[in-house]
Design a protein around this nucleic acid. Sequence first.
DNA 1: TCTAAAATTTAGGTGCACGTAAATTCTTCT
DNA 2: AGAAGAATTTACGTGCACCTAAATTTTAGA
Lengths: 231, 231
Amino acid sequence: MTSPRTQLSRSTEDYLKAIYQLEVRGGAAHTSAIADELAIAPPSVTGMVKRLSESGLLEHTPYRGVQLTPTGRRAALRMVRRHRILETYLTTKLGYGWDSVHEEAERLEHAVSDEMVERMAMALGNPRYDPHGAPIPTPSGEVEIPEHVPLAELPVGAVAELRQVSDRDPELLRFVASLGLRPGVAFEVMARQPFRGPVAVRISGHVPRDQVIGYELARGLFCAVLGKEAG
Amino acid sequence: MTSPRTQLSRSTEDYLKAIYQLEVRGGAAHTSAIADELAIAPPSVTGMVKRLSESGLLEHTPYRGVQLTPTGRRAALRMVRRHRILETYLTTKLGYGWDSVHEEAERLEHAVSDEMVERMAMALGNPRYDPHGAPIPTPSGEVEIPEHVPLAELPVGAVAELRQVSDRDPELLRFVASLGLRPGVAFEVMARQPFRGPVAVRISGHVPRDQVIGYELARGLFCAVLGKEAG
DNA sequence: TCTAAAATTTAGGTGCACGTAAATTCTTCT
DNA sequence: AGAAGAATTTACGTGCACCTAAATTTTAGA
């Protein structure tokens, strides 16, 4: 329950958030993964990681990667909350498209005050998910851990609902939207090709729409299974 | 009409805005005035001013102060617009009090995109004044130059309207509000004491209110004269 | 006019967060 | 097991924006 006494630098906030995301996506956060995530050179990460571990925000086992301490995790979750509240606010209140909010939130998350985040959250009715379906941590740092399956792993006949899409790539988001998909939309898996091949889905709606989705994309579309049609 | 090619650093933006404000409040912006404004040491200003003048944002006559170039002025006015749109947005849309918006805007003005500023402006109906009565520059960098007189300089019998209050000091703003004063409120000057003494005013309203205002405060309350009562 | 005080600049130094090049350690494959 | 390759760290250097202390220039007062 320790809170960092001095306020953190922009870089620190970025590192903590990146490391948190890497931990969530499984396993330890290695130097090179952090470097990739933040688009900086690996030696820079080593240096920064040293400072962060001296500040008690994470623990570093040389050559083995890093792990957030409870303090570090709290700070990371604070950043995640800010980011997702901002994205939700920008889409809901300022008319941004879901493909363009990430970049704006990425800068604002370092500048807004806690008070402003909470005011925005209140104006939105304390939303639980951001526009991409990602769960928004509470102010005290609790997050739902979503039970998602990538579309790429659903069997033929599965009926599922799209729950979450990565907010990183605007082009990808525009494409996903153009298919008629967004969080909450249900569909049925009609066919799958082996060898990382495309997936055919029938998207529910007034007029069901058949779409074919490449394997790479399908790996980034996280779904909740609703049921299974009789084959 | 030159636009800076690389985007400016936070510090640069702060310097340009501060220098602009000093130029508006009259005369040249001297090293020490800039240092005071930004709460940094004078030698730091000298160094930064050198860099800014090499970037073509201002001109520096050693020992004589600095002056913004057209490019510098444009960048400064962009920051002023951002700040004032933000203040207006925060009060109007997020329920902030006029005493607390300055600090928040001070950080956000460096982080928001031009697009977001314009979206906020649109959501507000393109306001011309911020909550403290300061004129908001247009996106292309035009500002109204207000014809204000400090309350401290109004003669007895003058009927005037409060137009603008500095947004700097939250305590001052709370006090001004507690007197029943805010931009747009009319009043009559009932009495003045010499030797920088207090001013007595009768504030218009359902029930006119008599208030006494210290000289120092009265120097920061900028008014438009509406008329003059018969003595 | 000359000198003391004030303002400004120069000189030299700090921390942060990045970079490249080279050394080290870990991993994996034969 | 040993050696090649990958990952990581060490060593060293950069730019930015700040600092203090000392030198310089301007200004104002006797």
